[in-house]
Design a protein around this nucleic acid. Sequence first.
DNA 1: AAGGCTATCAACCGCATTCGT
DNA 2: CACGAATGCGGTTGATAGCCT
Length: 271
Amino acid sequence: MGRQPCCDKVGLKRGPWTIEEDHRLMSFIMNNGIHCWRTIPKLAGLLRCGKSCRLRWINYLRPDVKRGGFTDAEEDQIIQLHSRLGNRWSKIASHFPGRTDNEIKNHWNTRIKKKLKLLGLDPVTHQPTQEDENNAKEIVNDADMDPNSTTEESLCSDDKPAALEADQHKVEAFSMEDDMGLMTFEETADLLENFKLLSGSFGEDQEGSWRNHQETNTPVSQRSSSSAEDSHPLQQRQQQQWVDGAEPLMSWDGLDYLEQELFFWENGQLL
DNA sequence: AAGGCTATCAACCGCATTCGT
DNA sequence: CACGAATGCGGTTGATAGCCT
């Protein structure tokens, strides 16, 4: 017996999400919380499958999702974790509050792999590549390897590439510093205001402000043509507030507590 | 300026796992 | 315990911006 499709795909929309769809999903989750992804699109008036909604929420709409480039410390920690966990992206992502598995996976595939190759390491095994095999053997011998330890963990000798040698220090430091985070109180307050603007005063016709948020934080590949000039003066002011507030911050990290509220409250009731 | 190429990342697909009955 | 539904996860694809020639 064949597996049932996750959802009835007939009549369902695919491809990039529109501002309107984002708005609908966001508003619905803000008001109702998350109980059953399968029912969310229907109840929210979306022609998407539940899976698509879940992915969109997790990877993009979640208030605490952390966007923007990875710091060197984050990259180094990803490498360390990957050497231990392999391609278990969700496990790796769990070490990076606000980062998504998809984002980490993409970053790994597009950048870190290359970085490792440049360092002469196989991105899959974290072992030195063929051409560096002789060097690797020396390193392994010097390090008196634990069979369970990884190459990187063992690369503590002077042969270790400088970039990797600094990894451990960076990873330790990472727990204390966060290049994207450590917002000031004022920044957090601004962000909260922006969040209220986004989630609270969203009218059916406020596509402009949301679109601007998207254009601020979304890669250009996902942008659509702006209609900001079509919006109401109030909306324009709000969207400008949003842009002014959000753009320099680039992160939703100050809103962790909002997400907590989101998942424990429904219709004003504590779940 | 135009066309080709590359890099990036959002989104999809299908399998695996978890959960409820 | 078995089964089906729901959700999670990882691999892959496709669109597009930007770079290069």
